[in-house]
Lab assay of single mutants.
Amino acid sequence: TFYNFIMGFQNDNTPFGILAEHVSEDKAFPRLEERHQVIRAYVMSNYTDHQLIETTNRAISLYMANL
């Protein structure tokens, strides 16, 4: 899942690491979701930090390219 992918960046001092920290603390994050459209919609609806949203979009693109 995307959640498992992004958790691989925990403790990294990178934008993906920052995203992983936010996702791990977000109890409502769709952890079992595999459809990138649902993940993107969730982030757009629940996150207000523009940098975090952009990082999510980049992470989703990388995740999709590696499926």
Score class of each variant (00 low, 15 high):
M64D: 05
H22Q: 07
K27W: 08
E54V: 09
P15I: 08
L19M: 05
R58W: 10
R58S: 11
T48Y: 09
D26M: 04
L52F: 05
T14A: 04
N57V: 11
S45I: 09
F9C: 04
G8Y: 08
F29W: 05
T14L: 03
T55Q: 06
R31N: 04
N46K: 08
D26S: 02
T48E: 09
M44R: 07
R31H: 08
S24G: 10
F9Q: 01
H22A: 11
I18Y: 10
H22W: 11
G17Q: 06
A59Y: 05
A41M: 11
T56I: 14
R40F: 12
A41Y: 10
I39Y: 02
I53S: 04
G17E: 03
I60W: 06
S45W: 06
Q10T: 10
S61M: 13
L19F: 04
I53T: 05
L19G: 03
R58I: 13
L62K: 07
E21Q: 15
A41L: 11
T1P: 08
D26A: 04
Q51E: 14
D12W: 07
S45D: 14
E25R: 15
I39T: 01
Q10F: 13
F16G: 01
P15L: 11
Y63M: 07
D12H: 12
I53H: 06
F16R: 00
M64N: 08
E25Y: 11
D26Q: 05
I60D: 00
P30N: 02
Y47I: 05
Y63T: 01
N57M: 14
T56H: 04
F5S: 00
R35A: 09
V38H: 07
M44W: 08
G8S: 13
N66F: 15
Y63H: 09
V23R: 01
E34K: 15
Y3D: 00
H36E: 13
D49A: 06
N4S: 13
L32I: 06
E34L: 13
F9S: 01
G17P: 02
F5P: 00
N11S: 09
H22M: 08
L32R: 10
S61V: 13
A65T: 10
S61Y: 11
R40Q: 12
I53Y: 06
R31W: 06
A65L: 13
V38L: 08
A20S: 06
H36K: 04
M64L: 15
Q37L: 09
N46L: 05
E21A: 14
E21V: 14
I18A: 13
V38R: 06
Y63A: 03
R40K: 13
Y47Q: 01
S24F: 13
V43S: 02
V23Q: 03
I39K: 01
V23P: 03
T48R: 11
F5T: 00
K27V: 11
G17W: 04
Q37M: 08
R40H: 10
A59D: 01
R31L: 05
Y42I: 03
T48L: 10
P15R: 07
G8E: 11
M7K: 05
N46P: 02
N4P: 01
N46F: 07
Y63W: 15
M44V: 10
E34Y: 15
R58Y: 11
P30D: 04
Q10H: 13
